[in-house]
Design a protein around this nucleic acid. Structure first.
Length: 286
DNA sequence: CGTGCCCCCTGTCAGC
DNA sequence: TGCTGACAGGGGGCAC
């Protein structure tokens, strides 16, 4: 599901309704969604005030603290949505459809609710004290839309691995927030075959990939993310980037760039989509 | 440490 | 109509 653009869209939809609200009560319907004991989770959240909503990679981060506290005595609720997780805000008296598979429900002091809903239950909610949050964040790679994500750094890191580039992009320790949809889309834009070993990309290909990752993520954010099936915004809406996808789920269709037929291949346990002409399996010298 | 494979879970769809 | 198998946006654990 949700990759960086979807998490970013959810964050944008939660910030207004959540920031400044206190959590009146928590209902843990599916304890297996929590990392750690449910009692500690409930005690750590109940009665506290939401200080901010942000994102790290694909994760939604909700900062929680006592009213008036500084950031240092905050805790961080980190939500990884897995494949089918949703974070839905339901205003008081909302007529929006009921969540189908609610896992955790937060009742807020204005009567509205935040519901974590997840059909497949691959998602996880983790409440972390500040130091643990910092350590966890440090295990993730740079934010691809930040200034920390540099061409030089990408070239250096690519050289250290011979993993196929599509798998390399999915590793959150390398770049935070890229998943299978946007890895495939970025590789098409950069004209790099998904099976190319990372350390065999030329510096020009790495430069193109760097730009392609950033532009595809930005475009997807502008479209509120990609809804193929499960993803919804915090308000329950669909994202509209699916109709702008150039290769993902377009197997058998014409390449928008050259007209050749888009191929699908399964490796690393997941589908890759690419144009065999625009993305040759070895770099073509100019 | 890097890499590849399996599994977690439910729902949907294609094929028979 | 109904059954079976493949597959779905993620990631943790394990063996090598």
């Amino acid at each position: 599901m949700p990759e960086l653009p979807e998490a970013e869209t959810i964050v944008g939809g939660l910030r207004g309704p959540l920031v400044g609200r206190a959590v009146s009560s928590v209902e843990v319907i599916r304890p297996d969604l929590l990392v750690g004991p449910p009692e500690r989770f409930s005690e750590g959240v109940t009665g506290r005030t939401i200080g901010g909503v942000s994102r790290r990679g694909k994760n939604v981060v909700i900062r929680i603290g006592y009213t008036g506290s500084s950031a240092t005595d905050s805790a961080f609720l980190v939500v990884n949505l897995g494949m089918s997780g949703r974070l839905l805000h339901r205003p008081t008296g909302a007529r929006s459809p009921l969540p189908s598979h609610p896992g955790v429900r937060f009742l807020l002091d204005d009567g509205s609710q935040l519901v974590y809903d997840d059909v497949r239950r691959f998602g996880r909610l983790r409440l972390m004290p500040s130091p643990a949050f910092g350590a966890w964040s440090g295990t993730l790679g740079p934010e691809p839309l930040s200034r920390d994500f540099k061409v030089a750094g990408l070239i250096r890191e690519l050289a250290r691995s011979r993993t196929p580039i599509r798998g390399w992009l999915l590793d959150q320790r390398r770049v935070a927030g890229v998943g299978n949809i946007y890895a495939n889309e970025a590789l098409f834009r950069a004209r790099v075959h998904p099976l190319r070993p990372a350390n065999e990309l030329s510096s020009d290909e790495a430069r193109r990939l760097h730009g392609a990752i950033r532009s595809v993520l930005r475009a997807a954010i502008a479209a509120n993310g990609t809804t193929l099936r499960d993803y919804r915004t915090a308000q329950g809406w669909h994202g509209s980037y699916a109709r702008q996808l150039r290769v993902y789920a377009r197997e058998g269709s014409d390449c928008m760039r050259c007209g050749d037929e888009i191929q699908r291949a399964t490796f690393g346990g997941r589908s890759a989509f690419f144009c065999p002409t625009c993305q040759p399996s070895a770099e073509v010298s100019a």
